[in-house]
Design a protein around this nucleic acid. Structure first.
Length: 453
RNA sequence: GAGGGUGUAGCUCAGUCGGUUAGAGCGCCAGGUUGUGGCCCUGGAGGCCGGGGGUUCGAUCCCCCUCACUCUCCCCA
């Protein structure tokens, strides 16, 4: 018989239980933080109708969709009318448009689900990955203070995750567009192209970007590009950068508008208590996506800038223009959990040593299986995650297996303990072993688990 | 879509200027220790050297093709 090699397709992340536990812990922290800020959960189907998902072709991500169809439709040679979502923003737009009458605005939702992109997998780039999104959607208007709340969530989150010092870089699309216009770079395609180049400042360096911008296709003379880059190189505390902007010898109505809006956000950030060293204004942050119209965010780990942004987003003027005539402005951010986790693993910042099993009931003597099974039930009744051994070999082997699996406690109930009416409980971390009256085992163990975790 | 790199044990990799039984470390299994993990010692299992063709007396090694994986750019999370 032919054996088919068991393997996954490239670009997916599949974990062993130890790592999955660590992943779930990160995910739980994210969810708890989102809920702390009053965001509501929603989930949408993995598949959307093609007509809904691909409203406007041309976007880079839309070229990477996975189409799906039933075997019946396929046999009939029909074109697929379903596709896997490639982000959570488009489904959100559809969701809000569809349920608008039933939603309370501003609508604050969080969503943590997997998305799919058919691209060549490479380091930190997946075909299936989980995104954790929060967005606030307003009807007609959305207060600017929400733009400050988003980084406040991120601040809390990364503080709790404890992945090291981080900085939320912020900028404003109106400031960028205003600057472009003031310098004679006209709106539309040209600004978008320049924006995309500017976004690479940190990655490619000033000289490389300057060289590119000075090429014919960009139509920026050397001095003009130089001036632009000098301004965009500004970064620092909010108040300082705003002062710099106000003191520039260029002016434009859009620029002023952007500065004014940014000032409101900066004030709100202070009131929210986001520490000044956790965020900055960075005029070179552009974000590639052109649907952003206001504040934009990128979050970098100070010790690992090479990772790039681990969480980014921004404000958009109209979320669901393709699906409804209602004007629905929003602001949101997305965390690429799969990518984040894989990098944390690489840097050995997350540990996979803990098991969800808290206590292993060892098997001393097959004759006593009835007693160990009962002990397991007693421990579970006390609220302890318990696994009972039915065929673990010698005691030493059972211990070794428990230790390797990251199970913190082993309960031993052999003939001696049975006579005494007690149970030996061994802490594998400390090596301590106690003889505890059987009636008290559950409570005592629970107390010890509380101390260690 | 464009351009690089790599395929040898479960994992990370040596190796052979082309030569007969292909190695190490880690991991795994068993034993040393008949009721106690981590350390140590001993032994063991496990490879059509990615696949096909060519050159050669002889190919894991050289050549060609192919497949797979991987990285960079593009774009993004």
């Amino acid at each position: 018989m032919d054996i088919v090699k068991a393997r996954t397709m490239p670009g997916v992340m599949e974990l062993l239980p130890g790592d999955q536990i660590a992943y779930n812990r990160v995910r739980d922290t994210i969810r708890a933080t989102f809920e702390r800020f009053g965001f509501l959960p929603i989930e949408t189907p993995v598949m959307e109708l093609v007509s809904v998902l691909l409203t406007k072709s041309g976007g880079e991500t839309e070229k990477q969709v996975y189409f799906t169809q039933s075997t019946g439709a396929r046999a009939q040679g029909k074109d697929p009318d379903l596709a896997l979502r490639f982000d959570l923003t488009v489904p959100l737009a559809r969701y809000v448009a569809e349920h608008e009458p039933d939603l309370a605005f501003p609508f604050r939702r969080y969503q943590m689900q997997r998305v799919y992109r058919g691209e060549r997998a490479q380091k930190g780039r997946y075909r299936e990955f989980e995104q954790c999104d929060i967005d606030v959607i307003g009807r007609n208007d959305l207060d600017l203070r929400f733009d400050a709340e988003i980084p406040a969530v991120i601040d809390q989150l990364f503080t709790q995750l404890d992945f090291g010092p981080f900085t939320i870089h912020m900028n404003h699309r109106k400031i960028l567009r205003g600057l472009f216009a003031a310098l004679g770079i006209e709106a539309g395609e040209r600004q978008t192209t320049v924006l995309r180049e500017v976004d690479k400042l940190d990655k490619r360096g000033r000289d490389a970007v300057l060289a590119t911008l000075s090429e014919d296709e960009y139509g920026l003379g050397g001095p003009l590009a130089d001036k632009l880059l000098t301004i965009l190189n500004t970064r620092g505390p909010g108040a300082e950068v705003l002062a710099t902007l106000r003191g520039l010898d260029v002016s434009h109505a859009l620029l002023d508008e952007g500065i004014a809006e940014m000032a409101v956000v900066v004030e709100a950030l202070k009131a929210l208590g986001v520490p000044a060293d956790h965020w900055c204004l960075n005029l070179s942050i552009a974000r590639g996506l052109d649907y952003y119209t206001g504040t934009v965010y990128e979050t970098l780990l100070d010790d690992h800038p090479e990772l790039g942004s681990i969480c980014s987003g921004g404000r958009y003027e109209n979320l669901a223009g393709h699906y409804t005539k209602s004007k629905l402005p929003g602001v949101g951010i997305s965390i690429g959990l799969t990518r984040l986790f894989s990098k944390m693993q690489e840097l050995e910042i997350v540990s996979s040593s803990d098991s969800t099993v808290q206590c292993l009931v060892a098997r001393m003597d097959p004759e006593l299986d009835h007693e160990t099974i009962a002990l397991g039930a007693e421990l579970r009744a006390a609220g302890i995650n318990t696994q009972v051994v039915f065929d673990g070999g010698k005691l030493g082997k059972q211990m070794k297996a428990a230790d390797k699996a990251g199970i913190p406690f082993v309960a031993i109930l052999g003939p001696d303990e049975l006579t005494r009416g007690s149970v030996q409980v061994k802490n594998l971390r400390s090596g301590e072993q106690q003889d505890i009256p059987r009636a008290e085992v559950g409570a005592r163990l629970l107390a010890q688990l509380g101390e260690t975790s």
